[in-house]
Design a protein around this nucleic acid. Structure first.
Lengths: 141, 141
DNA sequence: AAACAAACTTGTAATAATTACAACTTTGTA
DNA sequence: TACAAAGTTGTAATTATTACAAGTTTGTTT
């Protein structure tokens, strides 16, 4: 709670009730939730919450670098409040997104063709079948 | 042309006129085009082409492993017919997607937590500003 | 404390990528 | 030639996201 507040301030984000709730949600739910999931869950405790606010807030968080927005899912953006280096894995069957250790840094190459590029962020995405789905041979098709 | 035909057959895809045209388009245009770009360009030579066919076809290609579908763009999927190991970079200003050398393989970690995972594909995405946009200081905001 | 502006939130309507689906066409084969 | 399977097409539906204008909250000046 105070951690979340602190964290927002550190990242130059003014902590409103809604922002705090969303940030806390992300810190507590390491499930890479979608806008819909966040909105549905938080609506229970904040009935006046608007989905637009969730969109606006997550956009600001990502712009300020407080969270990551993941495009590992074709349909919708997912969000991640975990700020250590790690990769992601999406199960093609159950669609869950997992944190995966990333042991070596993936650097942006310093080469002639890319030397004037300004790299901001790097993501590593794995896709396949998670242990559950592999075991249960739920691999449709 | 024959290369494309060959390539489709090798990947277990029956080469129709439309499929061949789309595969050739991808081999010739290393621009990571969207469905819309492919559809608009190919419509000129194949006026009867349907956008649904483009969607269907690209989906099959990706499922068969003949092409890559990239989710580096939040709004829409992009496609890549280049099958050597490489990373991607999207410019946050001009939105172009570039191929970037990937010098070291990014392996899926063999650890307790992930040992039963079945990894199918791994993508490395960079986001930032390309050389053009960096130079021209078009970095909005 | 009242007045005011700036920042933030809300709800609805618009946009746009993608999918569903049913009809039509082409291809391969008996 | 006839038929079934596979492929294509166009339209309608779905759905994530954004635009926008009105309402609310917050902080500051007096």
């Amino acid at each position: 709670m105070d951690t979340a507040k602190q964290y927002l301030i550190e990242n130059g984000i003014k902590p409103s009730v809604q922002r705090l709730a969303i940030m806390m949600y992300l810190l507590e739910h390491r499930t890479h939730p979608t806008v819909d999931e966040i909105f549905n869950d938080l609506s229970k405790s904040i009935p006046t919450l608007s989905k637009t606010t969730v969109y606006n807030t997550l956009k600001i968080f990502a712009e300020k670098g407080a969270i990551l927005s993941l495009t590992i899912d074709e349909k919708m953006v997912r969000f991640d409040g975990y700020n250590q280096r790690h990769a992601h894995f999406r199960c093609l069957n159950c669609n869950k997104v997992f944190d995966i250790p990333l042991n070596h840094d993936v650097e942006f190459p310093k080469e002639e063709a890319t030397k004037d590029f300004q790299n901001i962020e790097t993501h590593v995405y794995h896709r396949g079948y998670c242990s559950e789905c592999t075991k249960e041979k739920k691999k449709i098709k």
